[in-house]
Simulated assay, not measured.
Amino acid sequence: MGTWSEEPFGNDTAADWAWELDEADSWAFVTDVLQGYAAGDEDDADRDAIAVAAAAVVAHGSGLPLSEEEDAESVEGFLARVGAPPASVVALARAALDKVGGDSELAELWDESDEIDDWRATLARLRDALPA
């Protein structure tokens, strides 16, 4: 996986998924990802990365500003079309971030890097932006 940043869209897999937001016209696109992730037993770093990206879209839809490192065009366009996320999607995003930050393949990969603290801070920033 090509990773250049601890930000949610800072890897090839998540960035490719985010471009698909250009075609999405409802929260169903994000909901499907988060529901599939919650139901999945497979531990796969690419699935983990997409779940983080989907949760980030929810956090941004809940008012978290996009960072300068994030490619914001697709996310901003999507949010302009669909508005704020429903509470059910927020709950799914919260659960996904908890799962990824726990015992996931992506967490294991980050544990092997010097940037683990930055990655965990990013997850916490996203999680904290989600309304309770």
Rank of each mutant, 00 (worst) to 15 (best):
W4M: 10
S113D: 14
A15H: 08
D16P: 00
P85A: 01
G40A: 00
P131R: 06
R120D: 11
D117W: 15
D43E: 13
R127T: 02
T3V: 12
G63E: 07
G102Y: 06
A24Y: 08
D43L: 15
D46T: 00
W19K: 14
L126M: 11
G61A: 01
L126S: 11
S104F: 13
G40F: 02
A132V: 02
A96Y: 07
D43N: 11
L106M: 11
V58F: 15
D71Y: 15
D25Q: 01
M1W: 11
E23R: 05
D22F: 11
G40V: 03
D22A: 04
S104K: 03
D41G: 10
A96V: 03
P8N: 01
V100D: 10
D12T: 08
A24R: 07
E108T: 01
P86C: 03
G61I: 06
A107W: 12
E23V: 03
E76W: 14
A93L: 13
L109R: 10
G83N: 15
F9H: 02
D71V: 09
S26M: 10
D22E: 01
Q35T: 14
D118W: 09
G61R: 03
S26Y: 14
L130T: 02
D16T: 09
D25L: 00
A45F: 15
L123F: 06
A56R: 05
D128T: 09
L64N: 07
V52M: 10
D43K: 08
E76T: 14
R120A: 06
G2W: 12
A15V: 04
D118K: 07
A84F: 11
L106P: 03
E108F: 07
A91H: 12
R127N: 06
E112I: 04
A15L: 15
D114L: 00
V90M: 02
A80C: 08
G61Y: 05
G40M: 02
A95W: 13
F9G: 05
E73A: 14
L126W: 08
D25T: 06
D41C: 04
L34A: 11
D16G: 10
D111K: 00
Q35L: 13
G101C: 13
F29M: 05
S104R: 01
D118S: 09
V30S: 10
A28Y: 14
P65A: 04
A54S: 13
S74H: 11
A129H: 09
W4Y: 11
A107T: 12
D44T: 00
D117H: 15
L79K: 01
T3D: 12
V90W: 08
D32I: 07
D12K: 04
W19Y: 15
A54Y: 07
G40K: 00
L79M: 02
L66F: 07
D44M: 01
V33S: 01
